[in-house]
């Protein structure tokens, strides 16, 4: 049992790491990765929703009628998203303001619904938690990495600390909208290159 859990957990970290291998849930990936802090904050919020919704969906998988399963998933996911929303407002208000509309939009993040449908609805709760945790952490790492590249080149800082000398001219393109697309495209290309070997 422990072995299969480890397997489900680790696949989210490399073999099926979202959003690179599973090209899903791109909107928050592009929108909030202006800085490492935002990226990781968003990743953690998504992970929480993923784990909770995966667990509950898997627990109820024999009760939920197949015909209305999507509606049930949506209610479950939306509930946890609102929990995260309220929690973030109460404890990390500045981050909540920065992520803004993208917190409630976790509800329509295809990864969360996708995992509920493709995995949690068919597997036991402990596997579903492992899967959610792995996918969530993989997603957080990706967002953090993308945030690091964009923040580093775009504002010359990492987590707000300057990394280059004072003569550095920020490559502002990277923190603007077009830079997000190009940067993600190139990182995807890099993943493909490494994956081929």
């Amino acid at each position: 049992m422990a072995q299969s859990m480890v397997k489900e957990f680790t696949k989210g970290l490399w073999a099926e790491i979202p959003p690179f291998r599973l090209v899903l849930g791109l909107c928050p990936v592009l929108a909030v990765t202006k800085s490492v802090e935002n990226g990781i904050g968003m990743g953690i919020a998504t992970t929480f929703v993923l784990v909770c919704s995966n667990f509950l969906v898997s627990l109820l998988r024999n009760i939920i009628p197949t015909k209305v399963r999507i509606a049930c998933f949506i209610v479950i996911i939306a509930t946890f998203v609102t929990v995260v929303e309220l929690m973030m407002q109460a404890y990390t208000y500045p981050l909540f303001l920065k992520l803004g509309i993208f917190i409630p939009l976790i509800v329509v993040n295809c990864i969360v619904l996708g995992r509920a449908e493709a995995f949690a609805f068919k597997n036991a709760p402990h596997l579903a938690i492992a899967d959610g945790l792995g996918m969530g952490i993989g997603f957080t790492l990706s967002l953090g990495a993308l945030g690091a590249v964009r923040e580093c080149l775009g504002s010359g800082t990492i987590l707000g600390n300057a990394v280059f000398g004072p003569g550095f001219q920020p490559f502002t393109f990277m923190v603007e909208a077009p830079g997000a697309f190009v940067c993600l495209g190139l990182m995807l290309c890099l993943m493909n290159l490494i994956g081929k070997k």
């Binding site: 090209v23 603007e176 909208a177 077009p178 830079g179 997000a180 697309f181 190009v182 940067c183 993600l184 495209g185 190139l186 995807l188 290309c189 890099l190 493909n192 290159l193 081929k196």
Partner: peptide
């Protein structure tokens, strides 16, 4: 080029369109 194919080049293209909307 092979590693750039499909989604990857799609994203870069989207970036250039975004630049024009900029």
């Amino acid at each position: 080029p092979q590693p750039l194919q499909d989604t990857s080049i799609g994203l870069v293209t989207a970036g250039i369109i975004a630049l024009s909307f900029f």
